[in-house]
Write a protein that binds this DNA or RNA. Structure first.
Lengths: 236, 236
DNA sequence: CGCCATGTTGATCTAATTCAATAACTGTGG
DNA sequence: CCACAGTTATTGAATTAGATCAACATGGCG
């Protein structure tokens, strides 16, 4: 599979959880026990119910995490971008499914060896703890979005989030890479495909965004988009 | 304030995060740096936006955690029961508000001293990591609930959750202690007070639950309640 | 080209919200 | 102990945001 060419435009790993700041010794140790994996678009990494013994780092591409109800309704719990982890299911995990959205380069760390490394290098445990804490904050924000925001507010928040991500990766914050389908976005925001499509159309009609290239959304008016997001904050 | 009497019926700390399993030495150390606090019902512990420098353990009573949108809509992100922690906002926290639901006994641990203890006792860091991981799993389940479940499914899931909690505290799993208001429940489940009230009424009419004592809900038919919960699981 | 997945748009429909009225319960002070 | 004020809960009627159903467009790819 020649996915290097396809992945090229979306590379650049900047703020890795396992990135700069770790002792070289630890970095080597982690590197040794890990392995690189390449997957095409729309492939499964692991399924809800599997007992996954690994932590994955996305090196390149986008991964989608989701959970299902018994009758097949899906909730997307997150999109994972380069430098971020998934698969950390310590504790009495209930599990989720991880699939690729784009072609993806992954680094796999067996959980057992990370566990051992944590004994030797407390800084690793710290970093993990910090990471899960941040995930928890993100999860709480998503609960606010799912439970209390309108379709327009949801979409606006989502687009602004993509923009931050874009900026964090030193790329144009107005040119949003949106490789996931409308259905994926819908399942992330607690909406239907149709509503996502309609809401995007409305933002387009309002001149807030433009759909120039397929797979990208261009933000024209950040101010009005921010107004719609009606975001977090009793920052009195 | 004589709240000992009022709190008596809801005591018993069983599965504390800082409970059995920690070295005695560490336990002492934690105990020394911590302090006990008593609060009445409906008091604020800290507000969204405050930079909170502490981790709290609920010793007795129930605490409610919530976030607000700019225009005042509220999302309850969780209820905290005896033995559980809140206030862990490492990382680039955005914060939330913590208020008491009932009269509450809290143990406060300054974050800084926990941090130091983690250096000396890696087991503490482990325990924290395990705890945040479990919180993350709970958060993902809540996202599924908020994004994809109907009002009846939400209520059924909530009641079953309370039942598990009740059982975990060695109390009757059919007699649910529900000290929070319908509004609190609504803000937790992404509904309105009226819908929560109506849905409870419907379960009552169906003979699935009974409202005998104020502040409690009695489950009569777990099987049908479980059917309604339409719960997590592609446990193929 | 023609197939299949994805996306858009329109016309209904409905679950839950909103608005409104009343009831029940809590606590407070005379 | 009771009245009355305030919060909390219930129930009904009207409204609506978003879902569902349906038709068609687009676009990538063998």
């Amino acid at each position: 599979m020649l996915m290097h060419t396809k992945m090229a435009p979306e590379s650049a790993t900047i703020n890795s959880v396992f990135g700069i700041g770790l002792q070289a010794e630890l970095q080597n140790r982690l590197h040794e026990t890990s392995s690189l994996h390449y997957l095409g678009a729309h492939e499964m990494v692991f399924m809800e119910g599997d007992d996954n013994e690994n932590v994955y780092e996305v090196v390149e591409g986008v991964v989608i995490l989701s959970k299902l109800t018994a009758d097949g309704r899906r909730q997307v719990t997150g999109f994972v971008y380069p430098g971020q982890l998934f698969g950390v299911s310590l504790g009495d995990s209930s599990g989720y499914t991880a699939e690729t959205v784009t072609a993806v380069r992954l680094r796999r760390y067996p959980y057992q060896s990370l566990d051992q490394s944590m004994d030797l290098y407390p800084s690793l445990g710290r970093r993990f703890l910090r990471w899960t804490s941040n995930e928890l904050v993100a999860a709480q924000n998503q609960m606010l979005l799912l439970g209390r925001k309108s379709a327009m507010e949801k979409l606006a928040s989502f687009l602004l989030h993509l923009s931050e991500r874009s900026e964090a990766q030193d790329r144009d914050p107005a040119r949003l890479f949106v490789p996931m389908t409308r259905g994926d976005i819908a399942d992330y925001l607690g909406l239907t495909t149709e509503t996502v499509s309609r809401t995007i159309s409305r933002f387009r009609q309002l001149g807030i965004i433009e759909l120039r290239e397929r797979g990208y959304i261009h933000v024209c008016d950040f101010d009005r988009l921010t107004d719609f997001a009606e975001d977090e904050g009793c920052l009195h």
